[in-house]
Amino acid sequence: MTERAGDRPAQFAPRVSVEAVEEGPLLAPKFNAEGFIPVVTTDARSGEVLMMGVMTAEALLRTIETGEAHYWSRSRQCLWHKGATSGLAQKVIQIRVDDDQDAIWLRVEVEHGASCHVGYRSCFYRSVPIGHLGDTQVRLTFEEIEKVFDPRIVYGDAPNPTQL
């Protein structure tokens, strides 16, 4: 990672009081000890959750500056401009921060209609049934039946970022 957890870019206000963080007019994001802040990304039109990731200070600043989503890839251990490889860029329509400024919400428009490297529109393409569990393993339900693109064509021989 290019920055350390203690580093605070000049563009972010210091976190001097609860009142300033919760009621003040300045962005004072709280990154965890590893330098990450969680981010939920949704489709700006439908509200559908597309993905969940993390940002570093640099990723958040680049997102603000460029209007396109940047994240920290935990699997690749590097700054990740969403769509740089796949062409599935996320144009940021709105950035929101929660009350204590320790989580980010991006509302985006997705180029080419997909956000998930597996080929589905959303990274949240399966649902978990609610109710009695019984003695069997939980079976997921596919909410998206067809992929928007074929990952083998888009990514070729690039390694899959999913880690076990």
Rank of each mutant, 00 (worst) to 15 (best):
G87T: 08
A33G: 12
W72K: 01
V97T: 03
G83T: 09
P9K: 00
N160L: 12
F142A: 14
T41G: 00
S46T: 14
H132Y: 12
F124G: 05
L60N: 02
A114P: 00
E34W: 07
V128S: 00
E146S: 13
T42N: 09
T162M: 14
P129T: 02
S17Y: 05
R126K: 09
Q11R: 15
V40E: 00
W80V: 08
G156Y: 11
W72Q: 00
M55I: 08
G35W: 08
D7T: 07
M55Y: 00
T2Q: 05
A114Y: 08
V39H: 01
D100M: 12
H132Q: 12
T66K: 09
V110E: 09
K91P: 11
M51W: 02
S122W: 05
V92T: 02
S127D: 05
Q137H: 14
S115E: 10
R62Y: 11
A28G: 02
Q11A: 07
L133C: 08
S86M: 13
R4H: 11
E143K: 14
P129V: 03
I37H: 04
E109L: 08
P9C: 06
G53H: 03
G156F: 14
I37S: 04
P14T: 11
V154K: 14
I93S: 02
G67E: 07
F124W: 12
D100L: 00
R107D: 10
M55F: 05
H112R: 15
D135Q: 11
E65Q: 08
A84I: 14
P14E: 15
L106I: 03
E109G: 11
A84R: 04
H117P: 01
L79I: 09
D157L: 15
C78F: 07
D43Y: 11
I145P: 09
V138C: 05
L27P: 04
F149Q: 09
G53K: 01
A33S: 14
L164T: 13
Y155T: 02
R15P: 08
V110D: 10
R107H: 14
V40A: 08
R121Y: 02
R139G: 04
S46N: 02
S17L: 06
T85H: 15
Q11C: 13
S73L: 10
A114W: 12
F12M: 01
F149D: 12
M1T: 11
Y155S: 11
N160V: 13
P29F: 01
T63Q: 05
V39R: 00
E34M: 13
F124K: 03
V128P: 00
R126N: 03
K82G: 10
